[in-house]
């Protein structure tokens, strides 16, 4: 500051009016392209959420995002007794009117139940409830109970028309665990865009959504977790710009019992974890909800079926998987 004062002091009078605007321009140009960056963490849906926003209104945008996230928790949580989905699952009437958010997410999920003929099934809830992966000593549920629960699993007994949801059977329950996080990150990205911000990064329990770029010439850099390795150990990174990067694998929510790995992706015909073709798939695309669903669906149905499904459904996504040698490979859409 001393130098500045001295410079100003030494300047001949007439130059002063020129100098001030010139300095202001210099200051403004220097700040351009590096909009203030602000990040906030929170806990929702039994997972950690981090949103980073590059904007002069970062605090306000983050406030609105976290408020919205609280609202979504009160819609999609299967455990929160005050949530809409909990009320749906513990209903007394078999026909209900549900919110737009729940209807949209459920509708997209039901499409994939249909496309996979029930190998992916949103009514898996009674079975998934028996598997407590967070327990201090997780245990394999008794076969009899799994069989009982399986008899309640059938997406064809759920009918959604607009906002009207009806059930054929009173003990059918819905689990949107494979779609809700994707739905939420997609809607948060929209919200951030609507608030006039073009640069943000959402990380919702391992689902990553990039809004715009990190800075003028730089995409967001998203690491892919290496399966069965220390958190933060990466198998690769991808550049992301206005897309989501969603990884799902058998290394998350799992336990080992009797030398066997039990993971959270369940087989709708047995109630046990399904035999997956890879430890992890990563789906990249513009529709987070779709990508989230496809990540789980792909683990269940296998490589060839995934290729076929993506071709036939015309889903605009790219899918990567970890092959037997631990390499990160793009799925050939021919399914070969």
């Amino acid at each position: 500051m001393t130098t500045l004062k001295r410079l100003l002091h030494n300047l001949p009078g007439p130059f002063f009016p020129v100098l001030v605007p010139a300095l202001l321009t210099a200051l403004l140009t220097a700040g351009c392209g590096t909009a203030p960056s602000s990040a906030r963490d929170g806990f929702f849906f039994d997972t950690v959420v981090r949103i980073r926003v590059n904007s002069k209104d970062a605090d306000d945008i983050l406030d609105q995002c976290f408020r919205r996230m609280g609202e979504y928790e009160l819609i999609f949580s299967t455990e929160n007794k005050n949530s809409e989905l909990y009320r749906v699952n513990h209903r007394t009437e078999q026909t209900l009117t549900i919110s737009d958010d729940l209807a949209a997410c459920l509708s997209q999920s039901l499409d994939y139940c249909e496309l996979t003929s029930g190998r992916f099934d949103v009514t898996i809830c009674p079975v998934s409830e028996l598997w407590d992966f967070h327990a201090e000593e997780p245990a394999v549920p008794p076969e009899e109970r799994l069989r009982d629960a399986l008899s309640r699993v059938d997406y064809r007994t759920v009918h959604l028309s607009g906002n009207t949801l009806s059930f054929d059977s009173p003990d059918t329950m819905i689990d949107l665990g494979a779609a809700a996080k994707g739905y939420i990150s997609r809607e948060l990205a929209k919200l951030i865009g609507d608030l006039g911000c073009g640069s943000a990064l959402i990380s919702l329990g391992g689902n990553v959504r990039a809004v715009g770029r990190k800075s003028a010439g730089k995409s967001w850099n998203v690491g892919i977790q290496k399966p069965f390795s220390a958190r933060g150990e990466l198998i690769g990174t991808v550049s992301a710009e206005d897309c989501c990067v969603i990884s799902s694998g058998t290394y998350e929510r799992c336990f080992v019992s009797g030398g066997k790995l039990y993971h959270h992706v369940l087989d709708t015909s047995t109630g046990y974890p399904c035999d997956t073709w890879t430890d992890q798939v990563t789906v990249i695309g513009e529709d987070d909800c779709l990508c989230d669903i496809i990540a789980t669906v792909s683990l269940i149905i296998g490589r060839e079926e995934t290729g076929k499904l993506l071709r036939e459904s015309g889903a605009d996504v790219s899918l990567f998987y970890v092959d037997g040698d631990g390499n990160y490979t793009a799925l050939d859409m021919d399914g070969t």
Binding site: S203, G206, N221, V222, P227, G232, L234, T282
Partner: peptide, 18 residues
């Protein structure tokens, strides 16, 4: 949560999927 702030890493990932 432990997080690092401050100097921008040269090629550190901004987030991790999975």
């Amino acid at each position: 949560i432990l997080s690092i702030t401050g100097e921008d890493g040269v090629d550190a990932p901004d987030a991790i999927a999975g």
